[in-house]
Design a protein around this nucleic acid. Structure first.
Lengths: 111, 111
DNA sequence: TGGCTATTTGGCTAAGCTGCCAAATAGATT
DNA sequence: AATCTATTTGGCAGCTTAGCCAAATAGCCA
């Protein structure tokens, strides 16, 4: 594993880490639909404004969202449109897990 | 955000979190090529065996890899083949970041 | 200006993660 | 059985994260 490769892996890990939180995934989902102000998102998430603001800062730092200040408010939108596709594989993983679990349950019931 | 939705987001976040570490990404990359024993991976990663073993346990817990004990050794392989595609979007994010950075650098040089 | 709303930042605590060493476990070999 | 190799587990120190409250900042409106 050379230096360049390591840096590449670290960069990828940073992006994944920024996405790896339920609230931030929710925000990403919402921003897929349309841009939103911090206030909007705060109401939808149901946490303290400061918490949501910090989540948004993390997403921005990772390059996943952009912000746009208009008047009083700051609107956030996705920086990268392809995040939707991103979940095809995650879903596959989750489906696999369900199948595994139900298979295991069946084995326990009928050993 | 109803209960089912929240659980779905948490499940997705767990998978992403399992991937969000440079060493674990490296392991995933290696396992894309072929199955590997813990010893193999430890040599490639260059950390303590116990550390690598714990990374593997995390990947397994998330449903990303499967293990297979043969004789003395435990071989790990990917549970889900589609992880390769998973990175198209991450790469797009990273490319965006580079473009942003070089654009900003240009602005600083020629304001 | 003063007050109002929207957002960010600082500070704190509780909880979680990472990596190492040491010890335990499991299989193979002599 | 004794020993060797491969792997996992327990435990700890150091570091990071999440969430809240309080305070600071920024723009709007009377």
């Amino acid at each position: 594993m050379n230096n360049h490769h390591r840096q590449q892996l670290e960069a990828r890990a940073r992006v994944l880490k920024a996405m790896a939180h339920p609230t931030r995934l929710f925000i990403i989902e919402e921003l897929e639909k349309e841009e939103r102000s911090v206030n909007d998102l705060t109401a939808m998430v149901g946490a303290d404004v400061s918490t949501v603001s910090k989540h948004l800062a993390q997403l921005k730092q990772a390059g996943l969202v952009r912000d746009d200040k208009r008047g009083n408010q700051v609107f956030y939108r996705l920086a990268v449109p392809c995040i939707l596709n991103f979940f095809g594989c995650v879903e596959a993983v989750l489906t696999e897990q369900l199948q595994q679990q139900s298979a295991a349950a069946t084995l326990r019931v009928r050993p």
